[in-house]
Structure formats: C-alpha cells, structure tokens
Design a protein around this nucleic acid. Sequence first.
DNA 1: TTAAATTGCCAAAATAATTTACAATGCAAG
DNA 2: CTTGCATTGTAAATTATTTTGGCAATTTAA
Lengths: 218, 218
Amino acid sequence: MQNNKTITQVEVPEVVVQRLPIYVRILSQLLESHIEIISSHQLGELLQITPAQIRKDLSYFGRFGKQGRGYNIQFLLDELRQILGIDRAWKACLIGLGRLGRAIINYPGFSPEGFEIVAAFDNNVAQYNSNLGTITVQSMDEIAHTVKEKNISIGIVAVPSNQAQSVIDTLVESGITGILNYAPIAPFAPKHIVMRNIDPVLSLQSMTFYMKENDEIN
Amino acid sequence: MQNNKTITQVEVPEVVVQRLPIYVRILSQLLESHIEIISSHQLGELLQITPAQIRKDLSYFGRFGKQGRGYNIQFLLDELRQILGIDRAWKACLIGLGRLGRAIINYPGFSPEGFEIVAAFDNNVAQYNSNLGTITVQSMDEIAHTVKEKNISIGIVAVPSNQAQSVIDTLVESGITGILNYAPIAPFAPKHIVMRNIDPVLSLQSMTFYMKENDEIN
DNA sequence: TTAAATTGCCAAAATAATTTACAATGCAAG
DNA sequence: CTTGCATTGTAAATTATTTTGGCAATTTAA
C-alpha cells in the first residue's frame, strides 16, 4: 500500500463522505417544512448521531454555522451539495434491461437528484424498445461510442452476473469514471473508477449474523 | 454510548461480518469450478484483500485451515454459512407492491440463498393480486397478524417514503427483528432491530464526491 | 528426511474514527 | 450596553480498527 495522501490536504474519511448525502436529505426535508435554522444537537437527534460528530464532519470542509445559533439550512445545503458535486446534473447510462433494468429505468428517484439516464443498452434490442419514453435501447456494441458521444460519466450495471465483469471492463475502457453495480459479484476495476455495489442478498446475509443470536432465545 | 461489549467475548467488527458473505459467494463459485482447496493468498488475490486480513477475519470464529495446505473450500463454506446464520431458511414479507415491490418479489436471487418471501402487503390489494404466484396480497392491517402467524422474521420495506417509517414501526411491533429498507429515508428503529438500507441515490451522491475531482481535469 | 508452503496467532505499529472539552462567539432579554 | 445562555469549531484525548511483521507448528511433496 503506497501513501498517496502526502499532498498537503487532510484526507476526508470515507465514512464522512457517506454521511454527507444523509445530511443533505434531512436538511432538504427540514427546508420543505419551512425550518430555517438547526443546531448540531437537533440534527443529531434526527439522525441518531452525536452533535460532535456532525460538527466534526462539517469541519473537514469549512465553517458553516454560527455560534450560539446553529446552521442556516439553506446555506448549509447549498454548500454540501457543492462539496458532494450534486449541485449539477450527471449523465448516466443503463446496461441491461431485464426486470431489474426496467425497474431502474422507471425509478422516479434519480432525476430529481440530478442523475439522468440518457442511454440504455441491451443485446436484445428489439424486445425492450417499447415503454421507455425518449430513450432508445442500443446494442451493447455501441456502449463505447455512445458514452463518448454523449459524455456520459456514470454506468449503471444491471446485467446477469456472468456478463457483469465484461460490461464493467467495457465501461471503463469507454472512459466512464463511476459505476453503480447491481450484479451480485465482487467487481474488479482500476483504482480511479468509483464503484458502488447494490446487493440486497449481501445485506440480508450480514443481517442474519446478528439475528440468529436473538433467535436462539425463542 | 454505553459499552455493551464487556461480556467476555471479543466483539467481531462489523466490517468483518460484512466481508463474510463475500467470502461465501466467492467460495461457492470456486466450488462450482470444482476447486477444492484454496490458500489465503489465492483468496486474497481474487478479492483484492491481503492474505493476513483474511486469516485474521476467520480467526474471530475458529480455525478452518490446514498449515502448509490452505482451506478446504466445502468445509470453510459450511462453517461460514453457519456463522452467518444462512445455513437455514429465513422467512420474509414484502410491504409495498408498486414498481419496486414487484421487481423485488420477482427477483430470483433471494430464494436460492434461503430468503423466502412468504407474504406481501399493500393497501391497494385488488390491483396487485395477479401475477404473484402463490402469494396473496394482503391489506397492511394484517401485517401484525400474519407476521406472527407465519413466524416471519424479516420485513422488506418498499413503500413510498412518507409511509415507510410507519410501516417500520408496525413491523417492529409485530415482532420482526430484521428490516431491509428500500425507502429513501433515515429510518428509526430500536437497537435490537437489524436494519439494512438499499439506497441507490445515496450511493450515487457519495460517488460524485470522488468523481467531481477527476472531472475538473477535463 | 528435508525443504517449501501455509495456517493461526500474537504483538506492535499505523491509521482512522469518535468523543471530550472548552475558548470564542453570537443572540436575546432586560 | 451588559449579562447569561446557546452553540460552533477545533485541539487533544480516547477508542476502535486495520495492517504489518514475524514465527512456531504443521502439512505436503520430493
């Protein structure tokens, strides 16, 4: 393991980065409820996190609050959005249009957050070309070309396990930098690629570890 | 934060528990390829983990290998499955049969791993009662009764955000001990409940934090 | 019988994450 | 304007986790 953080900047811990979107979500809700100011204590209450941790997390990026008062929610939100890079739109493509892929492409939660699926690929083009609104399904051969042409930066992988790694390889070669992988595999990609796995079976399997203990009481 | 691990046993770190299912998955694949023995070094290669970490992880639970030889895959698999509690079937129920819920109930990946959805609930019973095979959709009023009757231990939440917390509360009252939550909220539950969240938007939002930096080069 | 491979484990070191504590500041009330 | 309360930001201490190095014990294979 080489040290790649000698550059001056204090490295932001991964856990902190993962908490920021949660902060954003809660703050958005509060704003919708016409609340304008919140303290780290109140926010911690809502999130079941200590106030100190919230202040510490934020301190990696700057000073956003006012002593004696708390945080202006709108301001903090804008700052966090910028920090996360979600103050702008991101283009994504979807690979695989089986049951899962179709559920993903119809999921209404991505676009309000700025993630737009602008292309879809499946080798069974004809079968899936209906009901997809403005998007035309393309053959997987066209991934590289389309990704470059449309300047897509995120790939969403929803193909069967046995095809997933090769799709990922293709995406990487096409110049994509982020991959959201739904295939139940341990994917491999170069370090500059940001990978996130969505894997409900793994979640369940780590869940039962803790449940089995309780269960023995019954 | 109270110390709840003074009981004698060495607490198994959460990350370790989350790696075990990955070990199980890889080992299963190896077994299918008729490989019988593997060393921590080879396994580490496959998973991009150091051999020492794999040995350390396993050492929390016992001794499963042979010096000079490595691990018998079938044996290690059986042991890990038992440790995780996935050496038996778990009954789950699904709440919410919108697009997401229907994708979940049709997902073929749960049952081979021993997670069986044996009940489904939605307030719009009539609408969804077709195409669900053996499962009959019940009204949400019936959650508590059915969970107890069928001895269900896992709840899968796929209702809209605004209903999710109240569904979770109901599940908890019904005696469920594990919840797989697909609703994009920060759910609240008592500590004895094991909660896992599946939230692709949060994943994407923590992804762009790392992508935006690379992006500025373009 | 010997050499090579590999586990299990310990202890040490390094790294990371969380919590504590408090000075500094801002706000509100009088 | 002054006082007292609330709250941030952060340094330091603490706790937790991960990694590393090393080696005796054991197994296999030559």
